[in-house]
Amino acid sequence: MEGYGIVSRNAKGEAVRLIGVNRDITARMQAEEALRTLNTELERRVEERTAEIKAINKELEAFTYTVSHDLRAPLRAMHGMSQALIEDYADVLPPEGVEFAQRIEAAAQRMDRLIQDLLAFSRVGRKDMRPRPVSLHEAVEAVLSTLSPMFEEVGADVAIEGTLPTVIAHPSTLDQVITNLVDNACKFVEKSTAPRVRLSAETRGSRVRLWVADNGIGIEPKHQERIFRIFERLHGIETYPGTGVGLALIKKAMQHMGGDVGVESEPGKGSRFWIDLPAVSDGE
């Protein structure tokens, strides 16, 4: 029950009468009770779900640990033993035997690369990726300087056009994205062509677009979506080596940084990959 009342007074101000209403509020009390129960239940479920997610994360970490250590031990053996075989017994092995051993070694190396790429892929988004203002120019310059031995090896001509602005990103993740893009730009070219890569930026409203343009083999429009999926490859391992993780990692990383990635390309006319990132707004 719930009651409301008004005291009515006489001329001297003495209370003489009480006028009031009493109401049955059972239904409302029940509704309120139900709401409280629901809230408690919701809180409990959120807690439960959080605990579940934490457990899954822990399991994933244990899984990653196993992948990186236990899977690599037999790999180390394959790699080491085949190389020992080539080095120590090359003079008693027929050429075909040496070739087989070399193939085992190359396969072990490829699998190691794959495991490392997968680990990198699984790490994106697991670590604390709090974005902050980053000079895109400095980030690109640092990546190019790290990759310069590779540029020399393949005779690549890589340069920045103009000045690149400041963006909001997670620094080490951004480095990884740029590294993968430039690495791809130098890799997917005709054997007879020296790679030529140009990096430039344009501001589009509140976003900055970084372009990575190459003179490579290009990508047919029908494949342009597929290439961002993990393990997707358009070429045989002997033509263009790779694990099919690089672009998938870029996509995942860009999504985690509130950005995006895409490509404009035609076969034989090179590719122009782009990434979009939030720009630093005025006053920041």
């Binding site: 790699h79 020992a84 190396q109």
Partner: peptide, 28 residues
């Protein structure tokens, strides 16, 4: 060791390891 987990590295140094080396995949 093959473990590059930071808790293993940290614990090893805390216990007095004189150096911490990672087993490489490449025999070279």
């Amino acid at each position: 060791t093959s473990s590059r987990e930071s808790r293993d590295v940290g614990r090893a140094y805390d216990l007095g390891a004189n150096s911490y080396l990672l087993k490489p995949v490449n025999p070279e």
